[in-house]
Simulated assay, not measured.
Amino acid sequence: MKVIEVTHPIQADQYITEPVAMAFGFFDGMHKGHAKVFETLQQKAEANNLKKAVMTFDPHPSVVLNPEKKRTDYLTPIDDKIEIMDEYGIDYCIVINFSSKFADVLAETFVEEYVLKNNVKQIIAGFDFTFGKFGKGNMMTLDQLEQCETTIVSKQEIESEKISTTEIRKALKEGNLQKANNELGYHYRIKGTVVQGEKRGRTIGFPTANIQPSGDYVLPKKGVYAVSMNIGASDKYYRGVANVGVKPTFHDPSKAQIVIEVNLFDFKEDIYGERVTVYWHHFLRPEVKFDGIDPLVEQMHKDKDQAKYLLAVDFGDDISYNI
């Protein structure tokens, strides 16, 4: 996949020169609603013998347009988004820097400079896609173009509720991991690097890997989770328990930073510096302050047992002996 990073105004050598079907959108999360857009893109490209292209934006438009409610953390930071697009078999990905200058581009200019000059023959986007200064351009605007055919992807729903990035973010922050993963269509994931921590876990029988996220991810609600994890380039999934929070048993919550710690089951390797991916399967409980180490350790054993059972179900293990 060729990635074209554009800062307005787009340069002559950045245009796509062969005919394409192009999907437009921010696509944070690459969730089931977005999957429908990419499925439609695939169909239109194959039917018309076109290459597949995507136009997306970075950072989120709210950084410029609504600074009081700006969105600076993401379900899929730009590198993750590009990686998933590559897995979809996209040929071209145009990433437009959403700056103040770009926000001032008129809808008519966007159509001319960013759509028509990019050799777009098929346009695919969600029903709520808007563009141009003050969001005056929309899918009906594009549908009037004679040079292109426009396909509007309707809203996708689960149990009569629209699948949306906003709802997934809300579910994660409320600890409703089941809903978030269901709407994503995969287990939420955070990539990062294993860094040095306080090393307190090893003194109480629960050594943990401290994960420094590699991007501006949406962090799940503070609490304890059943997770799996890849290490380096390996496709092996290690199972474990993760804690997201400030460790209030040991720290003043008002002063401590939120950290991600993962205790892998039956794992004793040194993995400092390794790049890892944490997959979030189940929310077990909120983070709480314990009256000392003993009740904390007792609860951690319970968390571990619960996580082992839930992950065994997820991975399709024979759990009949536990029932």
Score class of each variant (00 low, 15 high):
residue 145 L to G: 08
residue 90 I to V: 15
residue 87 E to T: 15
residue 45 A to E: 03
residue 98 F to D: 03
residue 164 S to I: 14
residue 70 K to L: 01
residue 239 R to I: 11
residue 153 V to L: 12
residue 229 M to L: 15
residue 182 N to W: 13
residue 237 Y to Q: 15
residue 317 D to H: 09
residue 258 I to E: 00
residue 154 S to T: 06
residue 188 Y to F: 15
residue 115 V to H: 01
residue 201 G to I: 10
residue 287 E to V: 02
residue 161 E to H: 10
residue 25 G to F: 06
residue 177 L to M: 11
residue 102 F to C: 14
residue 311 L to Q: 06
residue 127 F to G: 08
residue 33 G to C: 12
residue 291 D to C: 08
residue 86 D to H: 13
residue 58 D to R: 11
residue 151 T to P: 03
residue 191 K to L: 06
residue 246 V to P: 00
residue 228 S to W: 09
residue 142 L to Q: 02
residue 108 E to R: 15
residue 267 F to A: 10
residue 220 P to R: 07
residue 9 P to Q: 06
residue 273 G to K: 08
residue 34 H to E: 12
residue 241 V to Y: 07
residue 126 G to I: 01
residue 208 T to K: 03
residue 68 E to Q: 06
residue 306 Q to Y: 09
residue 102 F to Y: 15
residue 323 I to D: 00
residue 231 I to V: 14
residue 9 P to A: 10
residue 216 D to S: 08
residue 13 D to E: 10
residue 104 D to C: 15
residue 222 K to I: 02
residue 209 A to M: 02
residue 114 Y to S: 06
residue 223 G to F: 00
residue 284 L to N: 00
residue 235 D to R: 13
residue 266 D to H: 14
residue 78 I to M: 04
residue 88 Y to A: 08
residue 49 N to I: 10
residue 148 C to L: 06
residue 52 K to W: 03
residue 299 Q to I: 03
residue 237 Y to I: 14
residue 66 N to H: 04
residue 119 N to G: 13
residue 260 I to F: 01
residue 22 M to Q: 02
residue 115 V to R: 04
residue 216 D to G: 04
residue 72 T to E: 05
residue 27 F to R: 12
residue 157 E to H: 14
residue 242 A to C: 05
residue 105 V to C: 12
residue 113 E to L: 08
residue 267 F to Q: 05
residue 132 G to F: 09
residue 16 I to A: 06
residue 90 I to C: 10
residue 77 P to K: 03
residue 298 E to Y: 02
residue 249 T to H: 00
residue 25 G to C: 05
residue 280 W to Y: 02
residue 118 N to T: 05
residue 195 V to G: 03
residue 67 P to M: 00
residue 258 I to A: 07
residue 305 D to R: 13
residue 107 A to R: 12
residue 255 K to R: 14
residue 21 A to D: 04
residue 313 V to D: 05
residue 32 K to I: 15
residue 151 T to C: 07
residue 34 H to R: 12
residue 273 G to Y: 02
residue 211 I to P: 02
residue 59 P to I: 07
residue 100 S to I: 13
residue 228 S to K: 13
residue 44 K to W: 14
residue 215 G to A: 00
residue 59 P to M: 03
residue 54 V to N: 06
residue 136 K to H: 09
residue 180 A to N: 07
residue 82 I to N: 07
residue 146 E to W: 09
residue 207 P to H: 05
residue 119 N to H: 07
residue 30 M to D: 08
residue 255 K to M: 05
residue 303 D to S: 06
residue 138 N to F: 08
residue 317 D to A: 11
residue 109 T to P: 08
residue 252 D to M: 03
residue 253 P to G: 00
residue 303 D to H: 02
residue 140 M to P: 05
residue 44 K to E: 15
residue 304 K to L: 07
residue 118 N to W: 01
residue 98 F to K: 11
residue 295 P to H: 03
residue 165 T to Q: 07
residue 65 L to S: 06
residue 142 L to R: 05
residue 236 K to C: 11
residue 160 S to E: 11
residue 89 G to C: 12
residue 27 F to D: 07
residue 132 G to L: 12
residue 222 K to V: 00
residue 156 Q to E: 08
residue 219 L to F: 01
residue 21 A to T: 10
